[in-house]
Amino acid sequence: MPFRAVGRHDQARGVGSRAGARSAQCRGAGRARRCAPCRGRRRGRAAGLRPGARHRARFGRYRAKAGRAADFLARYSIGAGASWQVVAPAKVFGPLSLNVDARYDNFADADVTSIQPWLQGYLLDGRLGLSARWVHAEDDIGTRADGYVLRADLAVTPHVNLFGGYADAPEISDGTLVPTRTVFGGLSVDVSDPLTLRASIAHEQRPTFDRSIFGLGLTARF
Rank of each mutant, 00 (worst) to 15 (best):
V6Q: 11
Q11V: 00
Q11W: 08
R13W: 04
G14W: 01
G14S: 03
G16Q: 08
G16P: 00
G16V: 02
S17L: 12
R18Q: 13
A19W: 10
G20C: 14
G20W: 08
A21I: 01
R22W: 09
S23C: 07
S23R: 02
Q25T: 15
C26P: 08
R27L: 15
G28Q: 10
G28C: 00
G30C: 02
R31T: 14
R33I: 05
R33F: 09
A36C: 03
A36Q: 02
P37K: 02
R39G: 00
G40W: 05
R41V: 14
G44N: 03
R45I: 08
A46S: 12
A47Y: 06
R50A: 01
A53M: 15
H55Y: 15
R56M: 09
A57W: 06
F59P: 10
F59C: 02
Y62V: 05
Y62S: 12
Y62L: 15
A64Y: 05
G67I: 02
G67C: 00
A69Q: 13
A69R: 04
A70S: 13
D71T: 12
L73Q: 04
R75K: 04
R75S: 09
R75P: 03
S77L: 05
I78C: 11
A80Q: 03
A80C: 11
A80P: 11
S83Q: 15
V86I: 08
V87Y: 12
P89L: 05
A90R: 12
K91W: 15
G94Y: 04
P95M: 02
P95C: 12
N99F: 09
V100F: 06
D101Q: 06
D101A: 10
D105R: 00
D105M: 01
N106I: 09
A108F: 14
D109P: 04
D111W: 07
V112S: 06
V112Q: 00
I115L: 11
W118L: 14
W118C: 07
Y122K: 04
Y122S: 05
L124N: 08
D125G: 15
R127H: 12
G129S: 13
R133V: 08
R133A: 07
R133D: 00
W134C: 09
A137V: 00
A137I: 04
E138D: 06
D139Y: 04
D139V: 01
V149H: 12
A152G: 01
D153E: 11
L154Q: 07
P158S: 06
H159C: 11
V160W: 14
V160I: 14
L162E: 05
F163W: 03
F163N: 03
P170N: 10
E171A: 04
S173D: 10
S173R: 08
D174S: 15
G175D: 13
T176C: 05
T176L: 00
T176P: 06
L177S: 01
L177W: 11
L177H: 00
V178R: 00
T182S: 03
V183L: 09
V183A: 06
G185D: 05
G185F: 09
G186F: 00
G186A: 05
D190P: 06
D193C: 05
P194K: 01
P194G: 01
T196V: 10
T196K: 09
A199F: 01
A202I: 06
A202C: 10
A202S: 12
A202L: 08
H203T: 02
H203D: 06
R206K: 10
T208I: 07
T208S: 14
D210L: 06
R211D: 09
R211C: 02
I213Y: 05
I213D: 02
I213H: 03
F214E: 11
G217N: 08
